[in-house]
Nucleic acid binder design. Structure first.
Lengths: 248, 248
DNA sequence: GCTTTCGTTTGATCTGCATCAAAGTCAGTG
DNA sequence: CACTGACTTTGATGCAGATCAAACGAAAGC
């Protein structure tokens, strides 16, 4: 996705991801100028909550740098991550007053925000923004559905391989390289966060990561630094037939 | 959802769900007229495929009567349902050439369709349609994320109770009643289809349905006809904290 | 009426992952 | 440098749900 969008980054655009993602592809100077006037930035430290489920949410925005997660929690504490927000991903829902999920910064995070009211007014006045938002939402929906297959039917080993493949792909995309041959990247998640994403326990995650290492599907340096010698092998382990694959 | 949308059904509107769902809320005569000119109907028998994943999909549409499912399948045959389409739900993605999922009619099905090209042109010309589509897509995304929690973290019994609650709610909504007290409805799915939706085997589904019956959470007449004496009890069994709940 | 077929139920057994428990690694800090 | 706390790994054991297997009930065809 990021590769795709990079084609649309204009000289006129600043670092604000809304402009890249929601507008740039078909932007004109007026729209950009208007967005520029109402935007502002927010920073969060690693581990800090951005917003809790149920809280009033009077802004929308997108990630500039860092990583945030969307999670749902049951009363007894069981947690399921339902989204992973990487740079350029959008947060918040136009037309909804309160947050539906817990949003947490897992690394230091900078977001580019717009107060909801003026943003919604702009959306009405500027169809391009709404259209771009629809595209992004449809992508997220596809990602969520692919994740449903993972959660419902894949084994622990396949889940781990899938997550690694997705992170590898996103990482390669950010570096504007295609994910073939040897890939090197850092895991942006702890074992526990991986477990919350995959519907597993952290112990199982640890065991399966070790197993993939033992079987030379990956190699590890420290806990986080991963090398994937053969990306196709990893995809095979992931049980993926398709090679689309999103991470939202 | 259907209750909500019923408020917007105008006298001028025909039975075409696109008009209800995508346009009616804020429709004007011109838009309706234009949509009316390009729409057509398709019928499918129970069990018939609507489209296979990967096939060219040159239309979009929505369900008028009957029920369809979206499923993903892995090479080795493991299947996961990722959507359940009830009357008024939308199928197809503007801007995508081929289907991403298998769509199957589980009952006799009538769909109201539009060829993709003219529909997309109308979307560009008529921002209301795009905005309504964005709302619907965001609802589906919420439903998918709630389903991720179910698939990743709920027990088999909770999964069954959740599915029954969702079907009961949707059924009550179609009858314009609020889902309290005793509810009676027919399951639109076989045990196997329920299993595919819940990430279980059909045997486990059968056992857990029997268990809920034994514990008087539900009663059954035949295999399909369900009575829920106490909806709140069912929600409790489902482990649901929220009482939103979508079924897409 | 009998047989076939499809969906379902129920029983016996197995297994992948959860759970419980302990110990190892590493960065930060007094 | 030892101490602390966060994160991770590894081991032992238990159990929810999968798998394998058989039988049941109802509808459809002959």
């Amino acid at each position: 996705m990021a590769v795709h969008d990079a084609q649309f980054v204009h000289q006129e655009c600043s670092d604000c991801p809304i402009r890249h993602r929601a507008v740039c592809a078909r932007c004109d100077a007026d729209e950009l100028g208007k967005l520029e006037q109402i935007k502002f930035y927010r920073s969060y430290q690693a581990g800090q909550p951005v917003i809790w489920s149920g809280d009033r949410m009077d802004f929308v925005g997108s990630v500039v740098t860092g990583i945030a997660t969307l999670t749902q929690t049951m009363e007894d504490g069981r947690r399921q991550m339902v989204g992973l927000l990487l740079p350029s991903d959008f947060v918040g829902r136009p037309g909804r007053a309160s947050a539906a999920y817990d949003v947490t910064a897992t690394t230091d995070l900078v977001m580019c925000c717009f107060r909801k009211k003026p943003f919604e007014e702009m959306m009405l006045a500027t169809p391009h923004i709404g259209q771009r938002l629809l595209e992004m939402t449809l992508d997220e929906l596809d990602a969520a559905r692919e994740w449903m297959l993972l959660l419902g039917r894949k084994t622990a080993r396949e889940k781990i391989a899938s997550l690694l493949a997705i992170i590898a792909r996103r990482d390669a995309a950010l570096k504007l390289r295609s994910p073939k041959g040897a890939l090197v990247f850092d895991l942006p998640l702890t074992r526990e966060e991986m477990a919350d994403y995959l519907g597993l326990t952290l112990e199982t995650v640890s065991r399966q990561v070790s197993a993939l290492k033992r079987d030379d599907v990956i190699s590890l340096e420290g806990n986080r630094h991963v090398t994937v010698p053969d990306f196709d092998r990893l995809l095979e382990e992931a049980g993926d037939d398709n090679d689309g694959g999103y991470l939202v």
